[in-house]
Design a protein around this nucleic acid. Structure first.
Length: 658
RNA sequence: GCGCCCGUAGCUCAGCUGGAUAGAGCAACGGACUUCUAAUCCGUAGGUCGGAGGUUCGAAUCCUCCCGGGCGUGCCA
């Protein structure tokens, strides 16, 4: 039962009697932050007073007169300028909790009154490239949203829109044709393909750096230095405001110049390193045109070249197996994996259809959709005739609408692509898909401890597989040290390993989910594996601590649930816990409303803290009598189940002992 | 140039569509294990919410300007 929804429903009725804008005003019923103000508070009397020309307290009084909440709340209190404070009746609270006790499957969470169909697009790695730290957020957030929405009774179709038709395959094909070790390919296709990809990528990078990037940066430095010389005069401007602005620009340009010079040094070092590399060096000259050659292999694949198509058919399964290995480890699954290649033969038609609607204009040889409010056009076909991801994204929308008729399509993709999605959504609307909710659920960058995007020391992206390994290794060390420190260790070697896997992977996921997704966050093993604070390890420990009571007391949980024992609220800590347990579904609803899993982590952390208060103050096994003992056991059971379910919805496993 | 995002305690971050005294964790200091897991808990200290205006009964939250930072910006994804 979602208490907040229920209260709002009732307020809506009483608001309508006052001829107010009931829907909007009812949204001002909120959970109270301070227990002194009850469990919930309605803040709508103040704005309404203004609109109705009445004193807010008078409005509050009338609202309360109309309000029908007798069985649910104590008599509402009006406080301050016109706050209406509501305290849930213990009796009603207990009724709800007993429902939760009995409802093993759903924990008393009612399905949404208006179930919707969502298509969830997340993870979307490029196959043939090892997954790296940049994929973690999309995968983890998307998976959590998927699970939460389903828990709330929505129909969710998860679709992994993998990049399986791009340049990276051109690289592998080129690599195969020049460098393959057939024996290695037979023995372990993924490793060999990965080797080929990396080798070709490094060769391409070398030439691109030497022939394009370095001259580009040099040019920028020359231009900027030239502009800087001219700027010096500007500092003598008389108008203080102009002068200040000029000084600022000067400062910024100087910083920029320093940065550019550093970049140039770095690029030159990279080139030198490649030339001195024993493996790479000898190949550099021979493969001078590799950049163009890779594009040609890609183009040949797209054009239906038999050899390349055969290679694609041969390589793809191994590539998929490689990313599936990571998904297995993360416990992430998808209903569909329809990548770019799936839409390949639909792209021409998409451009035609848009053209028929008069949406397409040719510009500099490219097919463009020009949109109001956007400077740059949305390009759907390049000069050379090739299609872009804009085109395949449009084809994907059409397919999804035809196949699943969703109410919403949600893209869990990093914030740097927001412009692309704005243009994509606008184009889709003009195309006729104007009733579907298209949502870019964006997220920030994972940063290293230096505050810059998380990279290895050599500047490459951190591999996801190694990231998970490291977390598990560290978790194992912590688990071992702590268990060894006990007089009587609790865990076998196997249990320690199993725990480390759950704690390590859970730590990474939880750290990601606990941050507001729109902001960047600093990746730190020490913080995410800490036993204090809002971490997976703390939540898992809280869970294990609750469970140990049942073990210690040799309590049969099923029997307890079916015993008909009732819950008693004899201390404030018991009531606070009861209230928190009941509010689980509100937390889930908040997650679903704005697609922010951190509302759920915040709730779980709050619940664990409140449970701590209960644990300190309310003896369970040594309660005064059996009735109280059983009551507290039921509260413990509900806490354990809520923690486990909440973590499960975040894709995190609990451990029974730690 | 234009567009989007960010700036909250020494550090890392919460703060839900504007609500009552801005919260956690870490670090600091002081307490609690013959008592259900001390991998824990409790307490103390720490803030001009980047700055200045404005809207409002009420602003960290909304608007304007300024300062500082990130990202994006016509043929990559």
């Amino acid at each position: 039962m979602n208490v907040l929804s229920e209260l709002r429903r009732r307020f809506r009725i009483s608001l309508e009697a006052l001829e107010a804008d009931a829907g909007e005003a009812a949204e001002l019923v909120l959970p109270s932050k301070d227990p002194r103000f009850g469990d919930y508070q309605a803040n709508c009397a103040m704005p309404l007073g203004k609109r109705l020309g009445l004193p807010p307290r008078e409005v509050a009084l009338r609202l309360v007169e109309q309000l029908s909440v007798e069985e649910l709340c104590e008599a509402p209190e009006i406080a301050g300028p016109g706050f209406i404070n509501l305290r849930i009746k213990d009796e009603w609270l207990l009724g709800q909790l007993e429902r939760m006790v009995a409802d093993v499957q759903q924990l008393g969470i009612d399905p949404s009154e208006q179930p919707k169909t969502f298509v969830l697009d997340y993870s979307s790695p490029n196959v043939a490239k090892p997954m790296h730290v940049g994929h973690i957020r999309s995968t983890v957030i998307g998976d959590a949203l998927c699970k939460v929405l389903r828990q709330l009774g929505h129909r969710v179709i998860s679709d992994n829109h993998i990049g399986d038709w791009g340049t990276q395959f051109g690289m592998i094909i080129y690599g195969y044709k020049h460098f393959v070790d057939e024996e290695a390919l037979e023995a372990n296709a993924v490793d060999e393909l990965s080797r080929l990809y990396k080798l070709v990528n490094r060769l391409v990078e070398y030439h691109a750096t030497r022939e394009q990037k370095i001259p580009g940066v040099e040019q920028q430095i020359v231009e900027l230095a030239g502009r800087l010389e001219q700027m010096d005069d500007a500092t003598e401007l008389e108008n203080p405001k102009d002068r200040k602005r000029a000084e600022k620009r000067l400062r910024q340009s100087e910083n920029q110049l320093t940065e550019l010079r550093a970049t140039l040094d770095e690029l030159r070092n990279q080139v030198a390193a490649a030339e001195n590399d024993r493996e790479l060096g000898p190949l550099l000259c021979e493969h001078a045109e590799i950049g163009a050659a890779v594009l040609a292999e890609t183009a040949a694949l797209h054009a239906g070249d038999k050899t390349n198509q055969a290679l694609w058919d041969r390589f793809l399964p191994a590539c998929l197996a490689s990313i599936d290995e990571i998904y297995d480890r993360l416990g992430v699954t998808f209903d569909h994996t329809l990548g770019e290649s799936f839409y390949h033969d639909q792209l021409e038609k998409v451009v035609e259809e848009l053209a028929q609607r008069g949406l397409v204009k040719e510009s500099d040889g490219a097919m463009c959709v020009f949109l109001e409010d956007f400077e740059a056009p949305f390009i759907i076909r390049k000069q050379d005739g090739a299609f872009l991801y804009a085109t395949s994204d449009l084809a994907t929308i059409r397919y999804r609408m035809g196949e699943w008729a969703p109410d919403a399509i949600i893209y869990v993709v990093d914030h740097r692509q927001s412009l692309h999605f704005q243009q994509l959504f606008e184009t889709a609307r003009l195309w006729g898909y104007d009733h579907v909710q298209l949502e870019h659920v964006s997220f920030g960058t994972v940063l290293g401890e230096d505050g810059k995007p998380y990279k290895t020391r050599s500047g490459t992206a951190v591999g996801l597989s190694g990231l998970l390994d490291e977390a598990v290794v560290r978790a194992l060390r912590i688990v071992g040290e702590n268990d060894d420190a006990r007089e009587q260790p609790l865990l076998s070697t196997e249990q320690r390993q199993e725990n480390a896997e759950r704690i390590g992977i859970g730590a990474i996921k939880y750290a990601d989910l606990a941050h507001n997704r729109t902001s960047d966050y600093v990746f730190s093993y020490d913080k995410m594996l800490a036993m204090n604070g809002n971490t997976a390890a703390y939540m898992q420990y809280s869970y294990a601590r609750v469970r140990s009571i049942f073990e210690k007391g040799e309590v049969d949980v099923d029997a307890l649930r079916n015993s008909g024992a009732s819950i008693l609220l004899t201390k404030p800590e018991e009531r606070a816990l009861a209230m928190a347990l009941l509010q689980f579904s509100e937390a889930l609803e908040r997650v679903a409303t704005d697609f922010r899993p951190n509302h759920l982590t915040a709730y779980l952390f709050e619940l664990a803290s409140i449970y701590s208060g209960f644990f300190e103050n309310c003896p369970v096994l040594k309660a005064e009598d059996d009735k109280l003992r059983n009551s507290r056991l039921l509260l413990c059971d509900l806490t354990a189940r809520t923690l486990a379910r909440g973590l499960k919805l975040l894709g995190i496993e609990v451990v029974e002992r730690m």
